[in-house]
C-alpha cells in the first residue's frame, strides 16, 4: 500500500495522460484484459496482451510494489515451468534435456499459458495501482453514487494501516525492553507474537469503537452530505464504461457459448 500512500500525499498539480482516465474505467480494463487472456490458449496472443499492459505501465510509472509483485509471480511461474514441464499429466514430447532430466513440451506450454495470464492480471492491476490515489478513488466512487459507508469499508484500511504499523512498532519496542525469551519451536514463536498482537488488536479495535462514535457525532450519515469533486477532469467516462462492459459481456458470453458447444 506504500505507493498509494505516497501518491495521496503529494497530489500533484499537473495531470498526466493517465489522470484523464477515471478509476472505474481502469478497473474495467483490468477485467477485460483478464478475460481476454483467459479466452485464448495461444501463446502469441498472450505475449501481445503482456506487451500492451506492460507498455501501459511503462508509459505511466513503474513502482517498487509492482516490481515486488512481479518478482514473486515470476518465481512461482518458474517453479510452475519446472513442475509442469516434468510431471504434467499430458506430457509426451520432450522439448529439452538439462543434465539428463527431460522437460516436456506440453507441460511447458501449459505452464507458460497460465503464467502469461497471471502476468496480464498483475500488469494491468499495476497500471491501476500506480496511477490512482486513494482519495481520488474515494471521491470518484462517491460521485458515482456509492454510499459513504461502502466507500469507508473499501478505502479506510489504506488510511488505518500506516497508523497500525506505527502502533505495532511502538508496541514491539515496549515489549523488547521488557525482555524476550529465545524462541526455537513454532509454539514458542507463536507465543512470542502474543505480546505484540494483543495490545495491537485491542488498540485497533478501541480506535474502531471510537471512530464509529466519532463518525456518527460528526454526521457522516447526514442525508445532506455532498460528494466532493475529484481533482481531475475525466474524458469520455460513460462511453468507456459502456464499451468496456460490453466487451466483458461478449467475452464471457463467448466463453460460455464455446463451453456449451463442446457438449452439443
Amino acid at each position: 500500500m506504500t505507493d498509494q500512500r505516497i501518491l495521496s500525499e503529494n497530489s500533484h498539480p499537473k495531470p498526466r495522460w493517465y489522470n484523464t482516465i477515471d478509476p472505474i474505467t481502469k478497473l474495467l480494463m483490468i477485467l477485460d484484459f483478464s478475460l481476454l487472456s483467459f479466452s485464448t490458449h495461444r501463446l502469441l496472443l498472450e505475449a501481445g496482451f503482456i506487451s500492451v499492459t506492460f507498455l501501459l505501465l511503462l508509459l505511466s510509472k513503474v513502482s517498487p510494489t509492482t516490481l515486488k509483485a512481479l518478482g514473486f509471480s515470476l518465481f512461482l511461474i518458474l517453479t510452475m515451468l519446472v513442475i509442469q514441464g516434468l510431471f504434467y499429466s499430458k506430457n509426451q514430447v520432450v522439448l529439452l534435456t538439462i543434465l539428463g532430466v527431460n522437460f516436456y513440451k506440453e507441460g511447458i506450454i501449459y505452464a507458460a499459458t497460465l503464467g502469461s495470464r497471471v502476468l496480464v492480471i498483475i500488469l494491468s492491476t499495476g497500471f491501476f495501482m500506480v496511477t490512482t490515489s486513494i482519495s481520488e478513488n474515494a471521491k470518484y466512487l462517491e460521485q458515482t453514487g456509492l454510499s459513504y459507508r461502502t466507500i469507508y469499508l473499501l478505502m479506510s484500511v489504506c488510511y488505518i494501516l500506516p497508523e497500525m504499523m506505527r502502533n505495532m512498532h511502538k508496541i514491539q519496542m515496549a515489549q523488547k525492553v521488557r525482555g524476550t525469551n529465545p524462541q526455537k519451536t513454532l509454539m514458542q514463536k507463536l507465543k512470542s507474537i502474543l505480546p505484540v498482537l494483543i495490545p495491537l488488536v485491542i488498540k485497533t479495535l478501541d480506535q474502531s469503537m471510537e471512530r464509529s462514535i466519532s463518525l456518527q457525532l460528526r454526521g457522516f450519515n447526514n442525508p445532506k452530505r455532498r460528494a466532493l469533486a475529484t481533482p481531475y477532469h475525466y474524458r469520455l467516462a460513460p462511453l468507456a464504461h459502456i464499451s468496456l462492459t460490453m466487451i466483458a459481456i461478449l467475452l464471457i458470453g463467448w466463453q460460455i457459448w464455446s463451453k456449451i458447444n463442446l457438449f452439443l
Binding site: K170, A174, R178, P195, P199
Partner: peptide, 27 residues
C-alpha cells in the same frame, strides 16, 4: 527499567498479576 507514555503499548496478559509476573519471568 523503563515505562513508556502509553500503558496500552505493553499490556497483554489476562490479569494484572500475570502482567507483572511476565516481566519477572524474564529475569
Amino acid at each position: 527499567g523503563i515505562t513508556f507514555q502509553n500503558p496500552d503499548d505493553q499490556l497483554f496478559n489476562a490479569t494484572a498479576q500475570k502482567e507483572v509476573e511476565w516481566s519477572l519471568s524474564q529475569v
